[in-house]
């Protein structure tokens, strides 16, 4: 047996170790599942970590009701294929109050549907540890994030009071009501994720692959008109273009890119050539300066 391991095997080993620690030390863990590529990798690692057993925790989808229909289909497919325990939560208060991605503004919309929805679910099910797919490379403010990220009784992140993390020894002690967010993919880069998906042949939501889809231009974005709810100008007609998505969010807020990449190698090739930060496709981050930091303090992932 060779002495050295590949970088992907090392990253995989680290992630599995983290997941097993959480299961051993926490009473009610949950894994966030958005059907995105990072979620798909997390799911894959969880299946490996507890093999030949089943994944011993539920998966949680915070459903804004505005996900792409392909996302719902993919989610349900994964649930039945792996026999997952899936929990779906929607912030019904916000829906009743008329919050929607068109009129509310992306800040208010995301705050209500994603953040409040998440906090409601964590409270409802009394989860003490929640796995998220965030990576340190993704964004400046994530570079210093710990793998076990502590949240107080109000799910708030106190950046001044995070515990030092040494080796792979994680301090899992919390007081009643407190919780942690766990980031098993902390040390993966976007390229690692793609390379691993390729290597392990991990199923992906079809939106990542280019296909002819009806789109409208909402500068600077191309929006995929995913269902009849999308408001169009009186004589506006969606145009069919060859597009795909680099990240998945709520469809009215997630920009598509024009692309011919319909296979994994082509996607990776395009990704290598397309040097733009990963989250630039999502509208939510542009609205506020330093918005990620603020959202984390409030309890976002």
């Amino acid at each position: 047996m060779s002495k050295s391991m590949t970088h992907l095997k090392e990253l995989e080993a680290e992630s599995i170790h983290i997941m097993r620690e959480v299961v051993a030390e926490f009473e009610r863990p949950v894994m966030l599942f958005s059907s995105g590529k990072d979620s798909s990798v997390m799911l894959h690692l969880a299946l490996k970590a507890f093999y030949p057993g089943k994944v011993p925790f539920p998966f949680l989808h915070i459903d804004t009701t505005w996900d792409f229909k392909e996302v719902y289909a993919f989610r349900d497919q994964m649930v039945s294929k792996h026999g997952l325990n899936l929990l779906v939560h929607t912030n019904m208060d916000a829906i009743r109050a008329g919050v929607n991605p068109f009129d509310s503004g992306s800040v208010k919309y995301t705050h209500n549907m994603n953040l409040q929805g998440l906090l409601q679910a964590l409270k409802k099910y009394k989860f003490d540890a929640a796995f998220g797919g965030a990576r340190r490379e993704e964004e400046k403010s994530r570079a210093k994030e710990r793998i076990f990220s502590f949240r107080d009784r109000h799910y708030q992140w106190d950046p001044k009071n995070q515990r030092p993390e040494m080796w792979n020894i994680y301090n899992a002690r919390i007081n009643p009501g407190e919780s942690i967010r766990v980031f098993p993919l902390s040390n993966w880069t976007e390229l690692d994720i793609w390379q691993y998906i390729f290597q392990e042949n991990i199923p992906l939501c079809p939106l990542y692959f280019a296909a002819p889809r009806p789109v409208v231009r909402r500068d600077p974005q191309l929006i995929y008109v995913n269902d009849h709810r999308y408001p169009l100008a009186p004589d506006e007609k969606p145009v069919v273009r060859h597009v795909r998505f680099r990240t998945l969010g709520c469809y009215p807020l997630t920009g598509a890119i024009e692309s011919q990449a319909d296979t994994l190698p082509k996607i990776i090739e395009e990704m290598l050539l397309f040097r733009q930060s990963e989250r630039s496709g999502r509208a939510i981050d542009h609205d506020e300066q330093g918005s990620m930091e603020q959202k984390k303090r409030e309890g976002y992932f």
Binding site: R136, E137, A143, K144, P159, K160, N161, Q162, P164, S186, N187, T189
Partner: peptide, 9 residues
């Protein structure tokens, strides 16, 4: 803000 380590890749 306590930053003990920032990771770069």
């Amino acid at each position: 803000i306590t930053i003990d380590v920032a990771y770069r890749f």
